[in-house]
Nucleic acid binder design. Structure first.
Length: 254
DNA sequence: CGTAATACG
């Protein structure tokens, strides 16, 4: 089973820059998307295509903001939107597809760079998400992918020193990823690659991408019950169209 | 610099 995650930074924009060609060639069973920026009611513009069915969670509080979704060719048992905690509903940040073998969660975690209020919201979202994942995990294993908006270690961004006070590499944000992994969620990419220089996001400014001045902030984590099933995890850094690139996971479900 | 609406990342 092949899974993908991609922060597309506007589905309308990437649709004109090869998104559906990428999906068709991806061999993906489920592709989770973040920052779709589709408004409520406009989901029909991005319907079934090439054997894939879509599901979207739009932001209901800001036009053209946030939003997550998925294209899948394997039908889920159930579909849910957003976290149960009412403080963290409405921005279109979580899509949950339930499959027989696991819960598939795709998430766009808040960006904390706009100010203290948004950093507080991000940290609160992290805690509420962990509680929700732990609750779901009581029934079956978890696969979670998406834009976590935090680089975990010094290996996960080009310039760790100069970003120690930047949201996305703050000690408290990194400490939450420590806590998350301590609960038994495995960073799948790191099962296969321990070196630095592997990134999933590059600033549009300063020719950051051509210079590979990037951050690894898009991840696949699995709860450790699934760790023996992880066959492959990778970063598709050659795929353009967004300031993020896709990441992939292959599971051997036997 | 870029998306999509004039804010946000």
């Amino acid at each position: 089973m092949i899974l993908h995650s991609w922060n597309v930074n506007g589905l309308r924009a990437v649709a004109g820059k090869g998104f559906f060609e990428w999906l068709s060639a991806s061999d993906s069973d489920v592709a989770g998307l973040q920052e779709t920026k589709i408004q409520p009611g406009h989901e029909a513009d991005f319907g079934e295509v090439q054997g894939y069915r879509p599901s979207f969670v739009s932001c209901t509080v800001k036009k053209g903001y946030s939003g997550v979704g998925a294209y899948y060719r394997r039908e889920p048992l159930a579909v849910n939107a957003e976290l149960p905690d009412p403080r963290f509903r409405g921005e279109g940040r979580l899509l949950h597809l339930e499959y027989p073998e696991f819960h598939f969660l795709t998430v766009y975690f808040p960006n904390g760079q706009r100010g203290q209020d948004r950093l507080d919201y991000k940290m609160g979202y992290y805690e509420a998400f962990l509680a929700h994942a732990q609750e779901l995990r009581r029934t079956k294993p978890i696969v979670v992918c998406g834009d976590f908006n935090t680089a975990h270690t010094e290996l996960d961004l080009k310039n760790p020193k100069s970003n120690e006070k930047t949201s996305g590499f703050l000690p408290e944000e990194r400490a939450w990823l420590d806590r998350f992994t301590a609960h038994g969620y495995v960073d799948c990419f790191r099962l296969f690659e321990q070196g630095g220089g592997h990134y999933t996001w590059w600033d549009y400014r300063f020719q950051a991408r051509s210079r590979n001045v990037g951050w690894r902030i898009d991840y696949f984590y699995v709860s450790d019950e699934l760790r023996p099933r992880v066959k492959r995890a990778w970063i598709e850094s050659q795929v353009t169209g967004s300031d993020h690139c896709p990441v992939g996971l292959e599971l051997d479900l036997g």
